[in-house]
Amino acid sequence: MSADIVARLETLLARVVSRRSAPRTAVAEAAPVPTSPAAQADKPRSVPPPLPRSTPPVEPPPVAEVAPPAIIEPPAEPESGEYGAAVFEDADVELPASDITEAEAGLEPVAPPPAASREPLDTIDTSPVLAVPHTDAPPAPVAAAVEPPRIELVRSDPPPAPPTASEPAEERPPSVEPPVAEIIPAGAPPVKVTGPLVLDAPRAPGAARPAVAAESPAVAAKRQEVLAAFGAAMPATSDLTDEDPDHVETRAFRITPPAAAFPTGAEPVLAPAPVPAARIERVEPPTRTTVLYAPELPTATVSAVVHPPAAVSAPSFRALLERSLALRPRG
């Protein structure tokens, strides 16, 4: 039994004694006893300071004179991991289950304080409070070998992937990340990237690769600049973030072979595709010429196609007179 545990047991006994000597109402308002030795040294043992309360004092339930069978309540379950960690860090004060069982015979339980007077879990000792009889019973032995339960947080991050044997880090250029590695099938042989990728024009199998002309210094400088940007994991589109819905497109752009974006001298320069001439034009005139007679109504220019009627020669007066002259009464 370590000295620390012995000191804590002494603290418990002192608290029980002070509770029995004090009135019952004071028991409910008893301040928590600091469990750490450092805290015990700072605060006196005899008069614990009262804690501030926001609720009116509640009359504690009466304590039966006849000691009922001992009921040991387990500590309250922590509501969160943070509280749980705090509780179980102090749980080394708790008595092992075997020791508690042995001490049940001579102990009488103390009614727990009402719920309204309970203190936060991180400031109160949640270990079962046992009343110690006045008899000079030897202190219950505490098994030091039993380790209190602890909770450990396990990181959910996957372990770092081991470096692939086929692509040692020394063989790559420091600023070039092979983006094609993510899209290579699993069964494909390893690809050794020793330099910028160059796309070749499709050729017949077995045909010789056409000679690649040296690129201009301006193109080479631009290539190195873009490769450095890729190596530094800079976003291709700086104005987009991961919260944007089109960030997937950004990622897709990242895995594009960087050399494909720059044509080399050997690649044929294709003429731009003809842009279709059909386009939508604004029919409405840019300026409004409508006079507003009703300002609350929006103005709009109504454009209509007027199909003039076919050129029908207006009947002359002579033709009209001929039709009238043609009238003949019957009989």
Partner: peptide, 26 residues
């Protein structure tokens, strides 16, 4: 008009005469 036309008073109302222009039988 150059057309042989006949006329007949079909009615009158106040200071207005209504004449029909047509053929002689009409």
């Amino acid at each position: 008009t150059g057309l042989a036309t006949h006329a007949a008073v079909a009615g009158h109302a106040g200071d207005t005469l209504t004449l029909f222009l047509g053929s002689e039988p009409a």
